[in-house]
């Protein structure tokens, strides 16, 4: 089992490095010369050349990538081309702000949607299931930008409970930001809940028809015990991946929602950086997001091992292969639209 974990860790690190390389290369392809962009149109060729060598742009791409990677590992992501500030602290600040909306969202959304999903699965095709399924379908189909606009209309303009947009900058304290997190939290919770509910419902239905549940029922156990002790650990396995991907998506920055509420999180930073072609920031955001994504998936795998002893087998076993197939399916189902 330890070997399995080490192998998973290794492949996680590999994935992050590969992702950072892909982003690095993509960004190198951005048109326009960075040096020229910094110095403006009127710059002379000499000053541009000098800037290029200062920025290290005259060294080969591979060397620059390795240098960047070494810096990144030590937390040095370079300096912003626009503000000239080091990228690391800016990133950290926005990441903190994103955490501030992500944590309540995950706590509220995951708890509620697992409960609702299991409930819908147990009441399959009854009115409770049909209404829960219909609501989650609607939640999946309304774009977040609309959901945000409606909530602003209702709770900021109609009944002024929450501020419509955040006026504080990224440097605001947690206490200053706290009143403005609730509308984004509601929008994100709804968006995330739909996928988790659907997945949990499906896997609950699937597990409840399996042989070992029949055995447990025919042992004369109470239904509550059958569900909680026998069905849930297995039924939650596919849900784990969906939750992991949704968490990763939120921590990586939710561009649309943060944009609507002008919330100073990772998403806004990303959008701003793309508008301004602030390459070091784009790179840093991408790598942090990839790391979070990989870490969340790793965590989901470890939790799966905790829930289901079969997952602890080294690969080669059919159970593992099946569970993996289920995982990637689940992953795809839960990934939804990541904005």
């Amino acid at each position: 089992m330890t070997r399995l974990i080490i192998r998973r860790l290794g492949s996680a690190v590999l994935t992050i490095i590969l992702a950072s390389l892909l982003v690095f290369l993509a960004i190198q392809a951005l048109p326009g010369d960075v040096a020229q962009q910094i110095l403006g149109r009127g710059a002379t060729q000499e000053s541009i050349d000098q800037m290029r060598s200062e920025l290290g742009l005259d060294t080969p791409v591979v060397i620059r990538y390795i240098q960047w990677l070494f810096g990144a590992v030590q937390g040095d992501f370079g300096t912003s081309l626009v503000s000239g500030d080091p990228v690391g602290p800016t990133l950290l600040l926005h990441f903190r702000n994103t955490l501030l909306i992500a944590i309540p969202t995950v706590l509220i959304s995951v708890t509620l949607s697992i409960l609702l999903g299991v409930f819908a699965g147990l009441r399959r095709n009854k009115w409770q299931d049909n209404s829960i399924s219909l609501l989650s379908l609607v939640a999946m189909s309304i774009p977040e930008f609309m959901m945000g606009a409606l909530l602003v209309l209702a709770f900021a303009i109609g009944i002024p409970l929450f501020p419509a947009v955040v006026l504080d900058g990224p440097n605001a304290t947690v206490a200053e930001l706290l009143p403005s997190i609730w509308l984004p939290v509601i929008v994100l919770s709804l968006a995330m809940a739909a996928y988790v509910i659907r997945m949990t419902r499906t896997s609950t239905i699937d597990v409840m028809t399996s042989d070992f549940i029949t055995t447990a029922q025919l042992k004369g156990l109470r239904e509550s015990r059958v569900v909680l002790r026998h069905a849930l650990p297995t039924a939650l396995l596919p849900t784990l991946n969906v939750v992991a991907i949704n968490i990763a998506w939120m921590l990586g920055g939710v561009v649309v929602v943060e944009n609507i509420f002008n919330y100073p999180g990772m998403g806004n930073l990303m959008l701003e950086a793309v508008f301004n072609r602030d390459l070091p920031i784009i790179e840093a955001v991408a790598v942090v997001s990839a790391t979070v994504y990989v870490a969340c998936n790793l965590l989901a795998d470890l939790t799966a091992m905790l829930l289901d002893p079969r997952q602890r087998l080294a690969k080669g076993s059919s159970h593992k292969a099946k569970a993996k197939a289920a995982g990637s399916q689940a992953a795809a189902a839960g990934e939804g639209i990541q904005l």
Binding site: D211, F212, T214, T215, A216, K219, G220, R229, T234
Partner: peptide, 30 residues
Amino acid sequence: ALRGGTVALVAQNAGQALTPSMRIGAQVHE
């Protein structure tokens, strides 16, 4: 009370009839 108490079942495929996430002892205990 009837199920498991008065009438008990041994099914065909024990590999699928036992709960994968529970230890043997716990399942017998239950």
